[in-house]
């Protein structure tokens, strides 16, 4: 057997072991990036062959939680693609205003920056008080950071620029307390967001949402998992609820394409049709 084939075989065994031991099916992740990550972990752990990870995964839960961190790529920022937040502010918020209570689900929230961004928009539009934001991820380490709402001070400059491009009306520094090297998001924002563990590979629906942001999460999944997640999102929202995808993602070829209409193609904003 060629080395390459042998390694493909080892990866299959590794993913099978994870599925049997922990119930997470990484076979439904886009394999190229997964493979890159497995290789990084291999080097960091001073191992030579992928198969050597299998006993570690089976017997060492700490090793598995490190592996999970490797797999969850938590790179994010506040007001990423500011024009999307501007559009939400200008075109979506008025529709949300008509509801007596607003539920928002930030799917794959990573370290929380996106959840705080949407909270700020709603605060400026006077809707935060009747809104609840559920921000979920399967990476507990990222969620722990999100809950503290503490970010390095040196990224605030960039976030301020994004905030202004997103149509920010105040001074961005009103939203956090600067302390030495860090900035802590203010309590009135934090208490409106529930950060919780939710694994898209296995967990279900938990509330009826009016707006769902699921950005840069589906890109890591294969068609099967994308479709199952998209069905879950569809079934977790009210008629005419809004769905926002990442900058390079689309519903076009998905199994739920007909259940949504496109509100703004370029900004990847969709609205659920009234289903019979």
């Amino acid at each position: 057997m060629e080395d390459k084939q042998l390694e493909a075989f080892e990866i299959d065994c590794l993913l099978g072991a994870i599925l049997l031991r922990y119930g997470y099916d990484f076979r439904n992740y886009a394999q190229a990036s997964l493979k890159r990550r497995i290789h990084n972990r291999l080097t960091l752990s001073n191992l030579q062959h992928v198969s050597e990870m299998i006993p570690r995964i089976l017997y060492d839960e700490h090793f598995f939680s490190e592996f999970l961190c490797d797999m969850s790529i938590t790179v994010t920022e506040m007001f990423r693609n500011p024009e999307v937040f501007k559009f939400i502010r200008e075109k979506v918020v008025d529709k949300l205003r008509t509801y007596s209570r607003i539920n928002i689900w930030n799917v794959g929230c990573a370290t929380g920056e996106e959840a705080y961004s949407i909270a700020i928009i709603l605060a400026e539009e006077g809707l935060l008080n009747k809104t609840h934001i559920y921000a979920t991820d399967y990476d507990n380490q990222a969620l722990a950071v999100a809950k503290t709402g503490i970010y390095p001070a040196n990224v605030m400059q960039q976030y301020t620029e994004n905030y202004l491009k997103a149509g920010g009306r105040q001074s961005f520094s009103d939203y956090y307390q600067a302390r030495y090297e860090s900035a802590k998001m203010k309590k009135n924002l934090r208490e409106k967001i529930t950060f919780a563990n939710h694994n898209l590979m296995q967990d279900g629906s938990f509330a009826e949402m009016h707006l769902i942001l699921c950005r840069n999460v589906l890109i890591y999944f294969n068609q099967t998992l994308q479709n199952s997640v998209l069905s879950l999102l569809r079934d977790s929202m009210v008629h005419h609820g809004y769905l926002v995808l990442g900058d390079k993602e689309t519903l076009d070829f998905s199994s739920v394409a007909n259940d949504f209409e496109s509100v703004d193609k370029q900004r990847r904003i969709y609205r659920k049709k009234r289903l019979r």
Binding site: A30, A32, S33
Partner: peptide
């Protein structure tokens, strides 16, 4: 990145 099934894949990383 390129996937085994000859599709393109993107990653925020």
């Amino acid at each position: 990145l390129i996937e085994e099934d000859k599709t393109l894949s993107l990653s925020v990383d």
